[in-house]
Amino acid sequence: MTRPLSTEGWQRAVLLLTGAHILIIAASNYLVQLPIQILGVHTTWGAFSFPFIFLVTDLTVRVLGKQAGRRTVLLAMLPALALSYIFGAAFQQGEYQGLEGLVGLNVFVARIAMASFMAYVLGQLMDIHVFDRLRRRQRHWWVAPAFSTVLGNLVDTAAFFALAFHAGPDPFMAAHWVEIATVDYVTKLAVSMAVFVPLYGLVLAMLQRWILGDGLGAGLSKG
């Protein structure tokens, strides 16, 4: 059983988590503009930053509940959209554009921001739904974060790259977005399974000791 937080504590936690979501989304939308090659295949730096958001979401649902997860998404999505556009326009493709970058509408950056908005909402709601159902049915702590991350990342990645780069103004990304999206998804899964799922278990145990008072073994066994 979890120890209930006060209303003030719950709201403070949701606002803190909302801020984390906004920062991760804005950073990832900038990093996705920077393609790299790994073992001869194309991906982006965003593949290494965005899995953080699934870690934050799953911990939110586990500790504060499904309602807190959904509220975090609702609070974060519009500020994240605005910040993604501002940051992306000012530092397009890794180069500082100055204030001139914010004058007028940057179609390339606006498309990325809108694609991120749609993909974020779809991916996070999928992640929350799957995670909440599995954590209630499975005794093993790793099942819910692992499977929700697989499905949430799939929905998010497919929606984002199709909306952002298919027949878009960037010739390279328009030509390679399917390859990049596939590698991006595989990279996210590899990073998530190797780093973020184990990290989820460690952070969950710490939070349970600090906030919930369940103890390490009991908390992890409950998922």
Rank of each mutant, 00 (worst) to 15 (best):
V183W: 14
D170H: 01
R71F: 00
T149C: 02
W10Y: 15
A13Q: 08
Q138Y: 01
F165E: 03
L78N: 04
V130F: 12
R70D: 06
L189V: 11
G65E: 10
V73P: 00
H176A: 09
Y185T: 10
A175E: 12
E8L: 11
L74A: 12
G46D: 03
E100G: 15
L125P: 00
G19K: 05
V61D: 11
V14K: 00
G223Q: 10
T157N: 09
V183L: 12
T60F: 05
I86M: 14
I112Y: 01
F117A: 02
V195I: 13
A167W: 05
A90D: 09
I180A: 06
Y120G: 01
E179S: 12
L102S: 13
G152D: 05
P198N: 11
W10H: 10
L125Q: 04
I211A: 08
T149N: 06
E95T: 14
A159D: 02
I38K: 06
L23K: 00
G152T: 05
P171F: 01
N29V: 03
I180T: 12
Q33K: 07
Q67K: 14
P171T: 04
R3K: 11
Y120A: 01
M193N: 03
L220W: 11
M1V: 13
G46Y: 03
Q92Y: 14
F131V: 08
E179L: 07
Y185F: 14
A174V: 01
I53N: 06
G123W: 07
F147D: 00
L5N: 00
A13T: 03
A119D: 05
Y96A: 15
Q138T: 08
V197E: 10
L16H: 07
V191F: 13
A205L: 04
A167Y: 02
A144C: 06
I128V: 13
V143D: 02
S116C: 03
I180C: 01
P171N: 02
L102A: 13
M173A: 13
F131T: 05
G65R: 07
M77W: 10
Y185I: 11
V150G: 01
G88T: 12
R70L: 13
H140T: 07
L99D: 05
A47R: 01
A119H: 05
F87R: 08
I36H: 00
D214C: 02
L102P: 13
V186L: 15
Y200A: 11
D58A: 08
A119C: 04
S6V: 04
